[in-house]
Design a protein around this nucleic acid. Structure first.
Lengths: 158, 158
DNA sequence: ACCAATATGTAGCTCAAGCTACAATTGAAG
DNA sequence: CTTCAATTGTAGCTTGAGCTACATATTGGT
């Protein structure tokens, strides 16, 4: 095998991105993956507090479909990252930072869901896919999404 | 704290999904996250073989932005899952199963990218976000996406 | 034919996220 | 006020994905 530093051997058809560009993209995706779980928890905690008045570990675990120790471990990580607070046998609360993140995440989630629906994705499919997609939607894409929705609402109104 | 099995305490505003439904969705997202990496590797290997004639471990590592042992470990996982083959110091090849996955993944990737572009997302942003989003786009959503593209092409032609 | 650079492989670590099994605490109902 | 079911917490394991450091193999150039 060649020893040269990966010489792109071929002027090719649908050209690969440069190594650097591609590595940057994959890196972003990796970061998004690792924050996705924190975002899910924060969003869910906010939802639970808003709708039921409290966020309890078991409810979180059940809604995420994981065991309660898993939930507790991740909540510990939330505390480490200063996103949530919890004292033994009391409920879970969001810090200011956590609240701020929750607001951003929920707004993004709603927008992604609306776009999927506007594109004709069936409701249940859209709800499911949005759960995964949302974490990978950057500011730039969000912007385009809300523009698109604005337009498509105008069109519908006419 | 109550001992009752999470009684939804409140007839609420933008109602939470049921526990089961939500757990199902989060479960899907978790599965997607764990297969995302395999998909990335398979897609990249296919691209490398097509454009340079071979897929070498270092190139894969560099393009993913990870160390080469990480790449080698993951390639070992690909072998375990019967997606790729590799003999010591020879390049990496896809099995039939791997090729099939690569075809699906690349088609999905292209479609997601096109949709983002059609929605007005700037190219570089779209390329980056697609890398993360693609893994969470189900068949149903894909179908809607290709319908949408068909329509928007028709409109543009008029 | 050799040597040095590159590529590949191996060892051994960290961390996050999942799990099961068990212990401790709480609080509602009797 | 006791009891007991539910909740919460703890211990200890597995697996995947990342890393660094080191060892071995390959190969192009001299």
């Amino acid at each position: 095998m060649s020893r040269k530093a990966s010489p792109t051997r071929n002027p090719l058809l649908h050209a690969l991105p440069t190594e650097q560009a591609q590595a940057r993209r994959f890196g972003k995706a990796r970061t998004a993956r690792s924050t996705a779980i924190l975002e899910d928890y924060v969003e869910l905690i906010a939802d639970l507090i808003e709708s039921t008045g409290e966020a309890r570990a078991t409810d979180i675990a059940r809604r995420l479909g994981v065991s309660h120790p898993t939930a507790i471990n991740t909540i510990a990580r939330l505390k480490r990252e200063d996103l949530a607070t919890a004292r033994p046998y009391r409920g879970i609360f969001l810090t200011e930072k956590g609240e701020a993140l929750a607001r951003r995440v929920r707004a993004r989630h709603r927008l992604v869901l609306e776009v999927l629906l506007a594109l004709g994705v069936p409701r249940e499919t859209a709800e499911a896919d949005a759960e995964g997609i949302e974490h990978h939607v950057s500011e730039g894409t969000l912007k385009a999404f809300s523009e698109f929705l604005k337009e498509s609402r105008v069109k519908k109104a006419s």
